[in-house]
């Protein structure tokens, strides 16, 4: 469904953030993108919806080459890609409802959105999504009154109301505590399964990635150095992606279900290691 061909980004400063990345994401696949800070993870997902203009290469979504679209076409293409951010990126001074409805901006005209006259169907949808992420009683609260986990849920609802085919998720859990992180990852995972969405999730937490996704891509200095199942992340592979370190404590050990406190402990060790 999504195909990246030779995607390259060189910033004006001369830094090569992405170096000929080829990637194919089939419909409904949830993929984690791991790699050290500065490896180009954020640049990669921003090149897909062209918040960052790629220097070279192609981005093709369902046969349409996004990297060639004009501004109107790009607007329509962006509607099909929901984005979820690390620091939530909610419009802090607007209400939860307005934030969720802002996901529909690609579908409504300027004056309609200025006077907040969204179609009744959008409002019904927004309410249903808030219910789905467990925030239905918060619709009238201002975004800056919510906790981190609640804000990220609003961010997820905003991405989903776009009715996307693909989710671009940039470090969804980096600002959250381990328990909330797991809840948010599980929610994203479930929603993708419910709606048959593909997702690219940038994530720092290797153990968390292994727990929740079916495919992992490792990026180092803008190059893809790993593409495979979560179980394939051996200490050698992690060394290849991140550099030399004691990886034994970081990797997922065996079974799917682990005690929550063990996970927390794991996180702390990882935080110490990185």
């Amino acid at each position: 469904m999504l195909v990246l061909e030779g995607l390259t980004k060189r910033y004006k400063t001369g830094d090569l953030a992405l170096d000929h990345v080829d990637l194919e994401v089939p419909k409904g696949q949830v993929l984690a993108l791991i790699g050290p800070s500065g490896a180009g993870k954020s640049t990669l997902i921003r090149c897909i919806n062209r918040l960052v203009e790629p220097t070279e290469g192609k981005v093709v979504l369902n046969g349409e080459t996004i990297s060639r679209l004009g501004s109107g076409g790009l607007r329509r293409a962006r509607r099909r890609m929901g984005m979820i951010f690390q620091e939530y990126a909610l419009v802090e001074r607007l209400s939860v409802m307005e934030n969720v409805l802002s996901g529909r901006l690609g579908y409504v005209g300027f004056w309609q959105s200025w006077f907040r006259r969204f179609p009744p169907k959008d409002i019904e949808n927004a309410y249903r999504l808030l219910e789905r992420v467990g925030l239905e009683q918060f619709y009238d609260k201002r975004a800056d009154e919510l906790s981190g986990g609640q804000r990220q849920r609003v961010g997820i609802a905003r991405a989903l109301i776009q009715d996307p085919e693909l989710l671009l998720v940039d470090e969804p859990t980096a600002s959250l505590d381990p328990k909330t992180s797991r809840q948010i990852m599980r929610l994203i995972r479930e929603l993708c399964a419910e709606r048959g969405l593909a997702a690219i999730i940038n994530i720092h937490d290797v153990a968390l990635a292994q727990q929740f996704v079916e495919r992992i891509v490792g990026l180092r200095q803008g190059k893809m150095v790993y593409d495979g199942p979560p179980d394939g992340l051996t200490p050698e592979v992690l060394t290849e992606i991140y550099g030399e370190e004691d990886w034994q404590a970081t990797r997922k050990k065996g079974g799917e279900e682990r005690a929550a406190d063990a996970i927390v402990e794991d996180d702390e060790r990882l935080a110490g290691a990185l």
Partner: peptide, 9 residues
């Protein structure tokens, strides 16, 4: 960025 990514003009 978030508003732009939603396809806003």
């Amino acid at each position: 960025e978030a508003v732009t990514a939603a396809g806003a003009g």
